[in-house]
Design a protein around this nucleic acid. Structure first.
Lengths: 154, 154
DNA sequence: CCGAAAAACTTCATGCATAAAATATTCTGG
DNA sequence: CCAGAATATTTTATGCATGAAGTTTTTCGG
């Protein structure tokens, strides 16, 4: 093995750029189809689903700042999404005893039931969209794609 | 070979979901770092860069509808991005002889020079962010990630 | 030729995303 | 205790994204 000629070093940058453009295109294609499905089947959006998914993993809910930390989105952004989920009765803001600044956000029973339906559909949509990959291939690529976090992230 | 046990079929869906979540996380991490770099180094955005990149491939420019076709974004969206690029003097709208509805959008000389600088920086940023991949690895993953387009896309 | 359909584009309403400023509350060092 | 720093959240300004509706111009069938 290893008799294959390596590409010239100066080509690595071009190949990485090509990989990036491919990842971007693939991700956007899937995201756009998920958006359409969430809209037509559940009258919701991917960001709202993401928030509910985060909340579903914590029985006691999360504080606003914890949601933005888990999802890595700005705190101002979470306010609007949580507002809309609360309007729909899928979540509630519960005041935190001893800290009047904070509020704990939790799924309601209605929210839990709705999320269970959405999560099942979501997994099926993804499995369909990525149906070309066997379990082994999917696992292998997912492992390869694990890039290090930005060390200067705030 | 092939003595390795295959994962049960019912796990394929879980592995595909895991792959999707990994792709999403990786793509968002890179996009967020690109956005910050475009903002701090060039006072621009990824969507504007995308439009300039599309225009740079066509000497005679593109019509508005061709831009949205190439970039696969809605036509209403392109209007705003092109407005801002025109304000900066990076592009011009040229009227199409014989069709007063349409306009041809072209890079100005200033726009071409600016795009050349941005494209060089962009390639370097990507190569740095994906520096863990050799040219061969990048090429291999890019090839694997080629998923079919949505057949019902409009 | 001429009225309806189609095409090219813009505008509007809504929502998500950010960064930065504002508000309210809690903590902390002297 | 108490002024100022830190924390938690919301608000504001800006821009990108969509889908749908609106405007102007062109095309096309009769």
């Amino acid at each position: 093995m290893s008799t294959q000629p390596h590409l010239p070093l100066q080509d690595a940058s071009k190949e990485r750029l090509r990989l990036w453009l491919r990842m971007l295109k693939t991700t956007r294609t899937i995201e756009s189809q998920l958006r359409e499905k969430f809209r037509s089947d559940f009258d919701t959006t991917l960001p709202r689903f993401d928030v509910m998914a985060a909340l579903s993993r914590f029985e006691n809910g999360l504080k606003m700042s914890e949601i933005s930390g888990v999802l890595r989105v700005s705190n101002g952004n979470v306010t609007g999404i949580v507002d809309r989920l609360a309007e729909d009765g899928h979540i509630v803001r519960v005041s935190v005893p001893g800290d009047r600044r904070a509020s704990q956000v939790r799924l309601t029973n209605k929210g839990k039931e709705e999320f269970a339906r959405q999560a099942a559909a979501h997994e099926a949509w993804i499995s369909d969209l990525l149906g070309q990959f066997s379990a082994e291939e999917a696992r292998a690529i997912a492992t390869e794609l694990n890039i290090p976090e930005d060390s200067h992230a705030q």
